[in-house]
Design a binder for these strands. Structure first.
Length: 341
DNA sequence: AAACTTGACAACCGCATCGAT
DNA sequence: GATCGATGCGGTTGTCAAGTT
């Protein structure tokens, strides 16, 4: 049983690449282009596994690889993106020109992970000792991020940078214990990798997998046992029961079992908050963020290339950004107290 | 100076997904 | 729809240099 190994390991070089091997690989790719990694070593005369060649090229030899220290701006962006996306290094790397997923992953594991944890710990201590509630500052959110090196870092002061970087997104879904989509049922779409797909579906916030709701009627947000909003008409009520098997349980109490609700779980879905909360989404009262739209948010964090390449992840990030905003609205800046109806 | 620890990062590994057949 | 090869991704390990005891 099991898969065949990608190649026979016998007689292959392992460990660090030599300059000679690098040159052979570079020359071969210059001539023949990328791809067909499995056959590449044989054709190029390298005693390496195809995977190894690919990795070496992508992480080290590829043109335009930026090496050297991660700048404070890059660091801030990594932290921010990681907060929204979790360990989706390739996606994060896509926003940092010249940086590789491996480099960012390593940097996170050796530097940022600890730093963020320390900051969070410090922040908790500060909050506990003063008894102050966290305040939501809309002006600190949705800071325009840009590739333009001349404007990188924007106008945020160092203190603001820290505050933004360490702000933890709590994705508790307020009083909404269920999100119910109306008829027709969305269908699962194949894209990206769902890290949780193979896990037992015991998560209390069971929003797993990717679903395409683009062809659905406008989804309905039903507020669990509390009164549905007036936006939900009789037809929608009917649809709710028709789609009962697609009800998504977002029970925050049960979520506490897992310590905290992980945004990444929600980001693994293809929903956008705007789909759930159109009445909020269409409102222009977004603090200092006027007329936000998915496209606008995408522009903030993704290059055009990425929009084409991985639309689903863009949507996931949009959802994250929007979730960040809406969670603040719903919690009124206070993570511990849930707004009642 | 030797032994040990730590940090940084390159490379490896296993698995998921995609796309062709 | 099933199968399989190719590729992508994220977690983990290995290695080496620098720092500390």
């Amino acid at each position: 049983m099991g898969r065949n190994p990608c190649c026979s390991k016998e007689g292959l070089n392992r460990g660090a690449w030599t300059a000679v091997e690098d040159k052979i690989l570079i020359d071969y790719i210059k001539t023949h282009g990328e791809g067909r990694w499995r056959n590449l070593p044989q054709k190029a005369g390298l005693k390496r596994c195809g995977k190894s060649c690919r990795l070496r090229w992508l992480n080290y030899l590829r043109p335009n690889i930026k090496r050297g220290n991660i700048s404070p701006d890059e660091e801030e962006l990594i932290i921010r993106l990681h907060k929204l996306l979790g360990n989706r290094w390739s996606l994060i790397a896509g926003r940092l020109p010249g940086r590789t997923d491996n480099e960012i992953k390593n940097y996170w594991n050796t530097n940022l992970g600890k730093k963020v944890q320390l900051d969070r710990h410090h922040q908790q201590n500060t909050t506990n000792s003063t008894g102050n509630k966290k305040q939501y500052h809309p002006s600190r959110k949705f800071t325009k991020l840009t590739n333009d090196p001349s404007s990188s870092g924007g106008s945020a002061s160092p203190s603001n940078k820290t505050a933004t970087a360490t702000q933890v997104v709590r994705t508790k879904a307020a009083k909404c214990t269920r999100v119910i989509l109306n008829h027709p049922q969305p269908h699962r779409i194949g894209h990206g990798r769902d890290l949780h797909a193979d896990k037992e579906s015991t998560s209390p916030y069971n929003l797993k997998g990717d679903y395409d709701i683009s062809n659905c009627e406008k989804p309905v947000l039903a507020a669990g046992t509390s009164n549905p909003t007036s936006d939900i008409g009789q037809d929608d009520q009917n649809n709710i029961s028709a789609a009962a098997d697609f009800a998504v349980n977002l029970n925050p109490a049960a979520a506490a079992v897992d310590d905290e609700l992980c945004l990444a779980d929600i980001l693994n879905s293809d929903y956008q908050v705007s789909d759930f909360l159109p009445e909020y989404y269409n409102s222009t009262n977004y603090g200092d963020v006027q007329s936000s739209s998915s496209t606008d948010l995408s522009d903030l964090l993704f290059s055009e290339e990425m929009l084409v390449q991985d639309r689903s992840d863009v949507r996931a990030l949009n959802a994250g950004l929007e979730f960040e905003y809406f969670s603040s609205v719903l919690f009124d800046g206070d993570e511990e107290n849930w707004l009642t109806d």
